[in-house]
Design a protein around this nucleic acid. Structure first.
Length: 320
DNA sequence: AAGGAGATCAACCGCCGTATT
DNA sequence: AAATACGGCGGTTGATCTCCT
């Protein structure tokens, strides 16, 4: 019954930090043969490590398509938004951040973003104002809860989509299993992602013309329109030029549509008062300010990318 | 210059869902 | 159908770095 014993039960396997020599061995082996079965890889590559350790080292550090260094403003914004939608689902969040690993995102959240939100009196877990955060007022709290409710609603759809993506990604991986990985210089997209992020411009705010038209999702997504947008915008693995996925489309939509459009839509919904909209605006604006404030302390070519539009973070009002 | 505190991040641990036998 | 391995994920740890006194 079952398979043969796991390599991890073997004694004498090395743990702890990887040496440059080990990195070189692992890298050379994978570039030549692909990783194949992680369990058997260490022996073949001449490493005294368990397969799990090798896989971790590869996915979090050695993979050629990993971007290291400071997170950009756009990446920070995306992480905050996605965390509000998805919670601690780091791998799902990493799917939407080109060339960043889930481990790196998780670390960045825990060491930077979480603290900043907490400082603002926002619970980094729920993205709701903390009960002990003074000054907000009951009305503003209500607005924030509505915003959170919206996010929760959106998250349901996003979760379903991610599950579908995961299924398709598995199928794609199975198809690709026989072929070795691309060489280091190939500029791979994230292998954990079924989406393409070739368009770094999508996040950098440049080159919108082409990506925008395709990626922009309707401002208000009913389940039906979600399905349509979903179907139109994804080609799951085969199409490296896909426009970046549903959520990226929504983000883009938010970024470019601007406050006027968003507030006009909100005004059409009689159940949402102007005051509530202002409160929502204030809440998301505070997140935005928090994110932007990080720019002044970071060296950066990002200054021109500062987002000044609070509506970027506003949920589509008609969804309330 | 020394040492203590806090921040950072690579790596490990344990669990879970899926695949395999 | 059951048992087991495998791969992936999120939480946590601990070594190292940086800053402050």
């Amino acid at each position: 019954m079952g398979r043969s014993p796991c390599c991890e039960k073997e004694a004498g396997l090395k743990k702890g930090p990887w040496t440059p020599e080990e990195d070189q061995k692992l890298l050379a082996f994978i570039e030549q043969h692909g990783h194949g079965c992680w369990r058997s890889l260490p022996a073949k590559a001449g490493l005294r490590r368990c397969g799990k350790s090798c896989r971790l080292r590869w996915t979090n550090y050695l993979r050629p398509d990993i971007k290291r260094g400071k997170f950009t403003l756009q990446e920070e914004q995306t992480i905050i938004q996605l965390h509000a939608l998805l919670g601690n689902r780091w791998s799902a969040i990493a799917t939407h951040l080109p060339k960043r690993t889930d481990n790196e995102i998780k670390n960045y959240w825990n060491t930077h973003l979480k603290k900043r939100l907490a400082k603002m009196g926002i619970d980094p877990v729920t993205h709701k104002p903390r009960a002990d955060a003074g000054g907000a007022g009951a009305a503003a709290s209500g607005a924030r809860y509505r915003a959170a409710a919206h996010l929760s609603h959106t998250a349901q759809w996003e979760s379903a989509r991610l599950e579908a993506e995961a299924r398709l990604a598995r199928e794609a991986k199975l198809r690709a299993l026989a072929s070795p990985p691309a060489p280091a210089a190939s500029g791979l997209e994230s292998p954990t992602s079924t989406l393409s992020f070739s368009e770094s411009a999508l996040f950098a705010g440049a080159g919108h013309d082409d990506a925008l038209g395709a990626a922009r999702a309707p401002a208000v997504l009913t389940p039906r329109s979600y399905g349509e947008a979903f179907g139109e915008q994804h080609s799951f693995g085969d199409d490296a030029d896909a426009p970046g996925g549903f959520l990226a489309g929504v983000l883009l939509d938010c970024a470019v549509a601007g406050a006027e459009q968003r507030f006009a839509a909100a005004s059409a919904d009689a159940s949402v008062s102007e005051q509530q909209q202002e409160e929502d605006k204030g809440y998301w604006s505070s997140i935005l300010n928090m994110v932007n404030s990080s720019m002044s302390s970071s060296s950066s070519s990002l200054t021109s990318e500062a987002v000044t539009d609070p509506a970027m973070y506003l949920p589509a009002a008609a969804e309330f």
